[in-house]
Nucleic acid binder design. Structure first.
Lengths: 202, 202
DNA sequence: GTTGGGTTTAGGCGCTTGGTCAACTTCTGG
DNA sequence: CCAGAAGTTGACCAAGCGCCTAAACCCAAC
């Protein structure tokens, strides 16, 4: 097994375990066992356990950022189409990287590693604010950029963070293709309502 | 110091620490120190650390449930007014019990203590679904009860869970009276858009 | 064939954790 | 006033933690 594969295996195991159990509760021994790699190699390749989490977030945010930028870079017929595609891209990313939103949400709710997360989120957030300001130059009262972004973000992310709760509450799988498609339609629908109001109010 | 005061002090310290640091990272020693109480007393009065968390959640959910039921029990002039008051009640509760949403969010995102949280949430959720079904007998496509509830829930809760992130992103205090009032107006506004669509589509 | 650097290994060190315990004090009903 | 229950205490324990170390291993370059 070459060194790159080792690092990859460690990252994958850590991703799964941090997502499933949480950062604090996951031990380096767990990661070693799951990845079939010696415990000391984690520290050899990544440094401390915190450094490992950072490497994980680094990779995920890079992927997410690339996907979102690609979506924004492609011109669409309408503002609505642009937003729709962006939201779908985001939802698809979260669906594919199920652990990601849970890790982020948990660390944010703990107040730990917040700096790192803010660091990565800030450019996207600023992009969103700037983009909203550009597309709609006079947002109506109660629909300012920060509140709208927080609402849309919460709407998208909550489905994934609360997946297990929703599963138990509804008795259905919230991550089934049908349920995911329905959720995406719902998110788009709400976004359309917001857009209509934003455009109507200028 | 009598026994009740001791228990109260422990609960308050645990609430603050679980909210600020997280359940896993908070030690019984931390709680003992912060509450000015001997470590062994935590176990004497509450059992295990898990039991302590449960006692905490129990109390918070009882308060929340009472507040929401009181809001629903009072008849209002319109459906909109009813919803507005309910949302305000919820937001006020979260603003007053800042640690609560963070604790819940973190535990949910960890997949731990989910049973307990589902147990408490289920009745409220079912109430919400039933109530939506009653008030609006044919919800339009893409605005089914589960999705709408998840959206509204996410919208309200995200502001509090991501408080620290928002503070850093915007440079402003998201929990200042002005910001909270603005957030409440925004949430009501979005709820109104949803309601209009729900009522128009039947 | 040997050298040397990158990689892997078992083992263990120092420390913190949740939880227990027996002894002590304080409260309370008879 | 006293006995027993309730509450409180610091010392203590086994278990598990992150991280480190010293030695072994591997393999390309000379």
């Amino acid at each position: 097994m070459d060194a790159n594969e080792t690092k990859q295996r460690i990252l994958e195991a850590a991703d799964g375990l941090f997502g499933a159990l949480g950062f604090d509760v996951t031990t380096t021994r767990d990661i070693a066992e799951r990845s079939g790699v010696n415990k000391a190699l984690i520290h050899y390749h990544f440094g401390t356990k915190d450094d490992l989490l950072e490497a994980l977030l680094e990779g995920a945010y890079a992927k997410l950022g690339a996907a979102l930028q690609a979506s924004l870079a492609t011109p669409r017929a309408s503002l609505t189409a642009q937003v729709d595609h962006l939201l779908d891209t985001y939802a698809d990313f979260l669906a594919e990287h199920r652990a990601f939103s849970r890790i982020v949400q948990r660390e944010v709710a703990s107040g730990r590693h917040v700096e790192r997360i803010v660091e990565r989120t800030l450019p996207m957030f600023q992009l969103g604010v700037a983009w909203m300001g550009e597309a709609l130059d006079k947002p109506p009262r109660d629909l300012d950029a920060v509140n709208v972004l927080a609402t849309v973000y919460g709407m998208v992310v909550t489905w994934f963070t609360y997946g297990e709760v929703l599963r138990r509450l509804t008795g259905k799988d919230p991550f089934s293709p049908a349920a995911l498609a329905a959720r995406k339609r719902h998110v788009r629908k709400v976004a359309h309502l917001l857009l209509a109001e934003l455009e109507g109010g200028r």
